[in-house]
Design a protein around this nucleic acid. Structure first.
Lengths: 187, 187, 187, 187
DNA sequence: CATGAATGAGTTTTCATTCAT
DNA sequence: TATGAATGAAAACTCATTCAT
């Protein structure tokens, strides 16, 4: 039962933080949406900041695992890129609020060291992928960080446009943007 | 003197809103940073929401003008794209906080209709540019909205990386990313 | 316990509003007098205006009931008048602050429609009484509204003088004023 | 010119105090209505309390003079009463806002000693009138204070009803109420 | 003299956090 | 363990008063 409540709190908080931001969301509102007493939140989390950090870490990790876990790194780079892209899209379809939450809380001053570390780790993985591609002369002779920024920027921008109903989330559009991205980075 | 105070308030608020968000910034903090009394802010702005809307409108407009004003639309599309990109980068170098402020406040519920309209207008201009490119069979056969999302996504992602010192803001890097973007969208 | 706090707030607010008026009474002062935290007031009342309206309605109603409930309207008019007067005096002895509060807040702009309606209702009852007396040719051939204004004016004036210790609140004085009033209105 | 401004401030303040009360009226609002700068008010009055006291004293005195000055005290009591009543009505017709202002500020905690003294003086005059009537066995054998309270209570109640348009301010109604009052007090 | 911009203390109101039940 | 009533610190905002012009 206690796991249920904790989860209800996390679910409610995530959605509210994604929609209204950290400071724009009151603890009372989280409690209401989670259908628990306001005091109950403090039995599971030290304070509001701890709650947002738990969420950030959980979903940053979840996203990292969704994108990378069990990935066959011996695949040809273009295939690997396709797989990464596919998984990003899949994650975003399954957890759009979570993606927006993560995006919204980049570099927020109330994130702790652990949260920031996870952020760096995921970026590191992408960095290594493009480093590898460069060594194989598959992608352009550009700093990998730039390619990472480019691809993640396109992905986030695309997903925001999907969520705001500015672009239709069809498989065709997803495939199209993947191809555009690859043309940008490939040699 | 009164124009000075109003400006000091706007400057302080912009920086704080960009760093800490709207709800994360107290009026007292703005007053302190602007070196005015807290009550003074209310001589110039009806309330905190009016202040953030004035800032949003002012800088959305400024960005639109910086990017588009006096632009020779008869230039060849690639040249036009280069010019737009150059101006975006220039604006971002001159007003990095302002760019982050605008990015941070997309779709914020406290923005009024006027603010939202300006937002749509600027997007519309980019849309038309890519529509024109497509008619001339210069860019790919893709919905212009997708190309807009792609280019703006890359730009914002790049600038964030610059600001966070993850990428060096050299002319070479700027030119490189422009070229990558173009390769993504061109036919 | 919660009913206690709500009541303590109502009691404190009533006395302060009666003594110092609505705008002259700060929420902090009410909280202090009620021995609750300032925030607690907002758990029971939406805002300061809601609080004053609850008080007004509660006591306007209480006064109406005290004066009219269970009254035998078939009594001879002079007896009926005596009974009304007796009940008014009784109410005033029991609830002098409440009477002053009601008197002080006549037609206040922060009173809502419900409050104003109750005000009208009580006046209506007195109006009907004098209408009936006139039909029976017991009181003078004068607009009933004038008789209502006369009697209520005397009553309020008398009670204010009692409270300010300008007149002694003896049964003799009460009976005397009742008789003077009746002589004014009777045929 | 300076007398004009002082007067404009007094006029504006009186009307606003009468309508909205002392605490419900901001100095800025008085200045706006008086068409002077807010600071100007402080060239004529030490502070807001001084202003309300000047007004109270001025109009309490004016009312006293209007009612009593040049009165022939050798007139028969009924004639004297008629004259007093006539003058009260006349004052109220000429200065209804002022009457409401005076009534609204009875016993207000921000009134100073001088204001309170004037209040007592006027009451004293009425007291003496009824004392005299009693000695002449014209009015009832009742404490004069009670008769004063009765007559002033009726007068105020009547004027409020006039102002709120509940009773028509016709000469007939005025004469009627005078007669009712006299019947109440006369032997 | 007259002003109104400027201010900070004070107002109403919100909210993260605590704690008695 | 769970609660939500209670709180006071802090938020947004107002306003009497001052003072440079």
């Amino acid at each position: 039962m206690s796991k249920d409540k904790r989860q209800a709190i996390l679910d409610a908080a995530l959605e509210l933080f994604a929609d209204r931001g950290f400071h724009g969301t009151s603890v009372a509102l989280i409690a209401q949406k989670a259908q628990v007493g306001a005091g109950t939140i403090y039995r599971y989390f030290a304070d509001k900041e701890a709650l947002v950090n738990v969420l950030f870490q959980r979903w940053k990790q979840a996203m990292g695992e969704a994108v990378l876990s069990g990935m066959d790194r011996s695949l040809p780079p273009r295939k690997l890129f396709h797989e990464i892209w596919r998984r990003l899209i899949e994650f975003s379809r399954k957890y759009p609020k979570q993606l927006m939450f993560l995006e919204f809380h980049h570099h927020a001053p109330y994130l702790d060291e652990e949260s920031r570390m996870l952020e760096r780790q995921l970026k590191e993985e992408f960095h290594e992928f493009f480093e590898m591609c460069r060594r194989q002369e598959i992608t352009k002779e550009a700093p990998p960080d730039i390619l990472v920024a480019l691809v993640t920027g396109v992905f986030i921008s695309l997903e925001k446009a999907f969520i705001n109903a500015e672009i239709e989330p069809t498989p065709e559009n997803e495939a199209l943007v993947e191809e555009l991205c690859w043309e940008a980075v490939r040699r």
